[in-house]
């Protein structure tokens, strides 16, 4: 069997997820034993002009040019993976959607603004079909490996749809709310093994909101801990602003 041709692409992002892949160490060598990387800007300069077996997409879609580019990549790819918060849920680039597009464009490119057409930030699956998701900012390396193996095997990978709390409890962390700190674990999809909380940080919601966040219960909790809706939305929107695009449809 020929090794699948795999290409990595980046859109609006910090390229931190590529760095996570490049930093896999020995495991990266194992992966390179079973796939053939044909494009990966972070680590090589070669290009590939045929079909991709697997395209791995980092970054969110923020310009008309990016829309064209991702559509072209999709057409050339048998399987498409979105990885990292920017690609899977829009991520922090979504904060752009808090502002008027012209206003923000002039702020960034004062006199040259007219040369930079812009659109609201979108997650990759808000533009093209996505087959696999590796959520997180950055991606959680063990989950990336899990997804790669699922792709190679041709089986689906389901992103856990329970709260981060479920994994956090298994790791026996003291609950952030008991420390008097607001944490987005209760509304955020698990799968990261509560990576941040294990290391003393809060959950920022980078993996996206669970499908059913039990809104009534969440409201009760905000009342109990005296958290205003504005503050909560502010925290949620740091990573999850692009959610609104789906809601509007």
């Amino acid at each position: 069997m020929n090794k699948p041709k795999v290409a990595f692409f980046d859109f609006a992002c910090c390229e931190g997820c590529q760095l996570q892949v490049a930093n896999l160490g020995e495991q990266l060598l194992d992966i390179l034993g079973v796939i053939d990387v044909v494009e990966f800007r972070e680590v090589m300069s070669e290009k590939w002009n045929k079909e991709y077996d697997v395209a791995i997409i980092e970054g969110s879609i923020t310009t008309p040019h990016a829309v064209d580019r991702i559509k072209k990549i999709r057409k050339r790819s048998k399987v498409l993976i979105a990885y990292g918060s920017c690609a899977t849920i829009g991520g922090i680039n979504g904060m752009k959607n808090n502002f008027e597009l012209d206003e923000i464009r002039e702020h960034v490119y004062p006199d040259n603004a007219k040369h930079f057409p812009t659109i609201p930030t979108m997650a990759v699956d808000q533009v093209v079909k996505v087959d696999y998701y590796v959520n997180g900012c950055p991606i959680y390396p063990p989950e990336f490996l899990k997804v790669i193996k699922a792709v190679l095997k041709g089986i689906p990978y389901a992103v856990p749809d329970k709260a981060v709390c479920a994994e956090c409890k298994l790791n026996e962390n003291v609950c952030m709310y008991e420390k008097g700190v607001i944490c987005l674990g209760p509304v955020t999809k698990a799968g990261c093994n509560s990576w941040c909380i294990n290391n003393g940080n809060i959950c920022y919601g980078c993996r996206g909101v669970v499908t059913n966040p039990q809104e009534q219960a969440q409201n009760d909790i905000m009342v109990k801990y005296k958290i205003s809706l504005d503050l909560m939305l502010n925290k949620m929107n740091m990573y999850n602003k692009c959610r609104e695009i789906d809601k509007d449809e």
């Binding site: 709260a163 479920a166 409890k169 039990q214 219960a217 009760d220």
Partner: peptide
């Protein structure tokens, strides 16, 4: 049911 977050903390502990 209205109050429950379905986080699973109760069963894990």
């Amino acid at each position: 049911g209205e109050r429950c977050l379905s986080c699973g903390n109760c069963t894990n502990v």
